[in-house]
Computed example of a mutant assay.
Amino acid sequence: MHNHWIVDLDFDEDEDRTTCTAKLSGFSAPGALGVGVARRSPDDTPDSTVGEELAAARACSDLAHALIDQAADGIQRRTHESAHLHY
């Protein structure tokens, strides 16, 4: 069996904050998403690249945790026992 999922990253920025939403797409991709935020320190000069990188990393991490939680829920539904998955 072959499956292919794509992670789509969507950014929203203002002067002080960058928000990224990471969402899976593709045939049979689970409905999971993650959100990450990067805030600029008032002492820093604006740099959208750094904000995007940090927000994207946090969104992908949040997405990974959401997928692990979904997998644990699936295991528990099938086995009727607590699943202990590690991050």
Rank of each mutant, 00 (worst) to 15 (best):
L24P: 01
D44H: 04
R58G: 03
S28I: 04
D73T: 13
N3C: 09
H4I: 05
E13C: 05
S61T: 14
C60L: 10
D47L: 01
E53V: 10
P30A: 06
D47Q: 03
Q70L: 15
I75V: 12
R17W: 00
L24H: 07
A59V: 01
H86Q: 11
G34P: 05
A55P: 01
D69C: 11
L24Q: 07
R77N: 15
H84P: 00
T79Y: 09
D62M: 02
S48L: 11
A56H: 00
A64M: 08
Y87G: 14
L67H: 05
L67P: 02
H65R: 15
D69T: 14
H4N: 08
C20L: 04
N3W: 06
H84I: 08
H2R: 11
V35A: 05
R78L: 11
R40H: 07
D8P: 00
P46G: 05
G31S: 11
F27L: 14
D44C: 05
F11A: 03
K23F: 00
L33C: 12
V35Y: 06
D62V: 01
I68Y: 06
R39K: 12
F27R: 15
A55M: 05
D10K: 07
R40S: 06
V37Q: 06
H80F: 14
D8K: 02
I6F: 06
L67C: 08
I6T: 13
L54I: 13
H80V: 07
A66R: 05
H86F: 04
E15K: 12
R77C: 11
A57K: 08
E81K: 14
G26Q: 07
K23Q: 13
L24K: 07
E81Y: 14
D73P: 03
R78V: 09
E52D: 04
T79R: 12
T79F: 09
A56L: 01
V50W: 01
L33D: 08
D14N: 15
Y87N: 12
A57R: 08
A57G: 14
T18H: 01
S48E: 08
D43Q: 13
E13F: 01
M1H: 11
H2G: 13
R77L: 13
S25E: 06
Q70P: 09
Q70Y: 10
V35T: 11
S41D: 13
A38M: 04
H65F: 12
A59P: 01
R77S: 15
Q76S: 14
A22F: 06
G26T: 08
A55E: 00
G26K: 10
S48F: 10
T18N: 03
D16F: 07
I6C: 05
A22G: 03
A38P: 01
V37C: 05
F11W: 03
S25Y: 03
A64N: 10
H84G: 09
T18Q: 00
G74N: 14
D73Y: 04
H84C: 10
D14V: 10
E13W: 01
L54T: 09
G26M: 04
R78C: 07
A22R: 00
G36F: 02
L85T: 06
H84E: 15
A57H: 09
T45N: 11
A71G: 04
A64E: 07
R58C: 05
L54G: 02
W5L: 06
L63A: 06
A71D: 07
D8N: 09
A29C: 04
G51A: 07
